[in-house]
């Protein structure tokens, strides 16, 4: 089973029950709007939010739990994990606070505890502790209209496509999260364009870790290659200079090879 969430924005009534459930289950404190917020309701103490725009629509925002997460590949100390089950979780005890995961995430999800002298990165973990024991995330459990549902990714994809088929014209014919940046565990079907959940660009299908992979794979070759090239050059130049010096000595009439 690969845990996933399907959110149908046409069914969302904007009641924010998912947000409250998330706060309760994860023991998140109340928060106030702060200077460093991104205006999407997410913060270090708010791991999911309901965006009330555009135009009276409600869209739930949370970590997408990518199949090939950029944050996991970016974290220099391996504090971020992609679990077998699907959620992308993190070990705060390993974090060094470099915030590279925040830079790397194409959805801009991880948030930082800027106000804290001992800050950590925080984000949705798909209620990993609950789903590990066979439960489901708090948000999907409380959703009164079943706008956001939990299940196996393949089954949810099937459900999504079924809904798209059965209600032509109601939805935009696309499952968000099916394939962009290699696919995500959190899927959306919607009647509005959801590109505002990202940096506004149309994502390609390439998983982002693949973008750094060639450069990282070249590292050992670059190291050995550069070292060998420098050593070789050093040897050649030294040899040539020695020969030149000998030739100069010969021309000057000195005995070849004699160095005082």
């Amino acid at each position: 089973m690969r845990a996933a969430i399907l959110t149908d924005t046409t069914k969302c009534i904007g009641c924010s029950e998912c947000v409250i459930a998330c706060k309760k289950v994860n023991h998140l404190p109340n928060d106030i709007p702060q200077r460093w917020d991104m205006n999407d309701g997410l913060s270090a103490d708010n791991w999911t939010s309901v965006i009330g725009e555009p135009a009276d629509k409600f869209v739930r925002k949370q970590c997408r739990h990518c199949l090939e997460p950029a944050c996991v590949s970016a974290c220099p100390v391996g504090a971020m994990h992609k679990t077998e089950l699907g959620p992308v979780i993190y070990e705060s005890a390993k974090c060094i606070g470099c915030r590279y995961c925040m830079m790397a995430c194409p959805f801009g999800i991880p948030r930082y505890q800027w106000s804290d002298p001992v800050p950590h990165v925080r984000k949705c973990i798909l209620c990993y502790d609950r789903i590990k024991e066979g439960g489901q995330p708090a948000c999907t459990e409380v959703c009164p209209t079943k706008a956001t549902i939990y299940g196996d990714r393949d089954q949810l994809l099937a459900i999504a496509h079924q809904r798209l088929r059965e209600n032509p014209g109601k939805y935009i014919n696309r499952v968000w999260g099916e394939s962009e940046v290699g696919g995500t565990s959190v899927l959306y079907i919607s009647d509005i364009d959801l590109s505002f959940l990202t940096y506004g660009e149309q994502f390609g299908k390439m998983p982002l870790p693949d973008a750094t992979r060639p450069a990282m794979e070249a590292v050992p070759f670059a190291f050995v290659g550069m070292g060998a090239a420098m050593a070789g050059l050093y040897w050649i130049i030294k040899r040539r200079m020695k020969l030149e010096a000998e030739r100069a000595d010969e021309k000057a009439g000195g005995k070849p090879g004699s160095e005082e």
């Binding site: 706060k23 106030i32 917020d37 309701g41």
Partner: peptide
Amino acid sequence: APAGRLVVLPP
């Protein structure tokens, strides 16, 4: 201008 600033507090 903080449009869409949703502050959510548990009841």
